[in-house]
Nucleic acid binder design. Structure first.
Lengths: 366, 366
DNA sequence: CTGAAAGCGCTTACAG
DNA sequence: CTGAAAGCGCTTACAG
């Protein structure tokens, strides 16, 4: 019923092998033959059978992109950028004029975004599914879960994936120990400089005179949460400011957390003059909590976020935050997932302080 | 090198056929045999070869979700919901206790999100790639491009996909003519009631006394754009209010469009008392433009959006908008993509007016 | 309940 | 430059 390669071969009066060669462009084929085959392909509206091709060639063109939350633009921006750069020709190559250029409509890599929803189990499940599909590459985005057992399971899975020829790229996730077998399996790591960014943000607040600073952190078990919190604490320690544990509250990386935790913090410690959110989305909730309490930003309360998502400029005033070049990082991850890199490469993505209107001086006591 | 089903069979002292049966749980197997096989699977850390399995069984468990912009939560919310409901057991089934329950870690469907970026060519490319993978289902989300040639190409492709056994679900996209072969190929359509929602929104503004209403529309060639605009115009016509073509400007569904177009509108027609944005993201840009011009919302200018994204409540004041149950719609699409439905089903997703602080009475002339 | 065997639709040495 | 043939790793009637 479905048209197969054999049908094309018959119509073009050549062997299946020749059709395969024309389609893949990996062997020389006489121009006249080539044209005959292409005409037959067009006439029969032939579409390669992906599984059969993947089985025979022992490779596939599937690239999996794992994200923690697909509804969060933090991940959407990275995933979209990665996907857009998966088929970027290596610089200098001019495939359009090469006589061996593959002609498949399907020469393109299929970038697929897999949403773990932050669940360790689903992360592993997706990795297995991608392993099963013999994916060409896997890009893991965002922070990792810090649970010894889970980390070991992921590392082991990545090593197996790599052993099977799948390229692994970490984007926004700390590098695995490079000495370990698992670390060596990772093709490339783009690690975000969360710690430095967070430190600079807190230094900014300290410079403005703030001493009582609330902190709404993300899930306790994520690397992103820990690194940002550590940067914050480093800055406090360096300035000799007490780090009151009661001023740090954990939650999810979402608006609801910001709203709830900020409300708690403000009720608990009315002397707070600033609240730092672990990311911009949480910061939106913090701003909402401040509004509910009738606090003006930044006159009564300074608020800051992290990431510099597009929404950071939609609050009034706009959010002071730490900019992470998410699009650029995602794009780079896409290139690394396909290009030829010597494994084990680690690049640090810089985090830049962006001061806007939501932070200001310490309110004068009334 | 990689462990195959034959290796498992050898270790478990059974035939490959038996291993396959245990793994798929589609044939009765003696309990003792079953256990032996499972032990061998675990010991060898066996992972099914997806392509081989798909080739032999002539099916795959890939489900493609096409989105126009993965960085936009409008799509992220739907895609995430769909993905989360792809493996929902049909109501009433209790698979956990069935002795025939498949034991593959990989029984799950692999939901993959494909980002077209709004490009017609990429939409077609992805459909071909999914066809090539013999996808179990394809969910197309968001508005369609209204270009006769492209529409025909998509419809033809969908018909072929369906002929190959792929289930097709449209979510947030108008139904194809049900009489046509292509329409019949679509398993289910969830069409958003954009027109009514838009009409109700404009009626709300008219009831507040607004007569000069600007409109920042989406891309001219998308169904979503057209339907929302038609609803707006219906309301104007019904109220006998002139529809000044100069007050409608087109752009993309993004913040930058809202900012630029609103600035143009306000410069062009300073007598505007309200601006409607085709979606919430555009509305954020409209609000920014109003701020830049020193206009207070809603005292000087009423602003409204569409979709009721989470960000709609982060503006100050919160955005009046039209709520689309995106999560619910995506979840339903996920269920329809896997469950057994008689093809051709069409469901309308209601759009509900949500009045918040960004719209108010007409400003008193000063 | 289990096995032997054919077949799914490609790709790729191996010859020529 | 082209073809015949083996093989990729599964699944599934067909027998028993």
């Amino acid at each position: 019923m479905t048209v197969t390669l054999a049908d094309v071969a018959e119509r073009a009066q050549v062997s299946p092998a020749t059709v395969s060669r024309v389609l893949n462009g990996n062997y020389p084929v006489a121009e006249a033959t080539r044209e005959r085959v292409l005409r037959a392909v067009a006439e029969l509206d032939y579409v390669v059978n992906g599984p059969a091709s993947a089985l025979a060639a022992a490779t596939s063109d599937l690239v999996g992109i794992l994200v923690n939350d697909i509804a969060d633009p933090f991940f959407g921006i990275m995933a979209g950028a990665a996907q857009a750069h998966l088929n970027t020709p290596p610089a200098g190559a001019d495939s359009s004029s090469s006589p061996l250029a593959p002609v498949r409509t399907n020469a393109e890599r299929l970038a697929v975004v897999c949403n773990t929803g932050g669940s360790p189990a689903r992360e592993l499940t997706y990795l297995t599914l991608l392993q099963r599909q013999r994916a060409a590459a896997v890009i893991l985005t965002g922070g990792a879960i810090e649970d010894a057992e889970h980390s070991a399971a992921v590392a082991a899975k990545l090593a197996k994936l790599a052993a099977g020829g799948t390229r692994i790229v970490l984007c926004g996730r700390p590098a695995l120990p490079s000495a370990s077998a698992e670390g060596a399996a990772v093709s490339a790591t783009l690690s975000f400089d969360n710690r430095s960014g967070a430190r600079r943000l807190t230094e900014h607040l300290l410079a403005l005179g703030h001493r009582r600073i609330g902190y709404v952190a993300g899930p306790a078990e994520r690397t992103t949460t820990r690194h940002r919190l550590e940067g914050h604490r480093e800055a406090l320690a360096a300035a000799g400011v007490e780090d009151d544990p009661a001023l740090t509250l954990h939650g999810s990386f979402d608006r609801a957390t910001g709203l709830a935790r900020a409300a708690q913090l403000l009720a608990l410690a009315p002397d707070l003059t600033a609240v730092i959110a672990a990311n911009d989305t949480i910061a939106l909730g913090v701003c909402a909590a401040a509004r509910e309490r009738g606090l003006r930003i930044p006159d009564d309360l300074s608020v800051a976020g992290f990431d510099d998502l597009p929404s950071a400029t939609d609050t009034v005033p706009a959010l002071t935050t730490v900019r992470l070049p998410l699009y650029e990082a995602g794009a780079r991850a896409g290139v690394l997932a396909t290009g030829a890199v010597e494994p084990g490469r680690v690049e640090t993505v810089p985090a830049e302080l962006v001061v806007r209107g939501s932070t200001g001086g310490v309110p004068v006591p009334r």
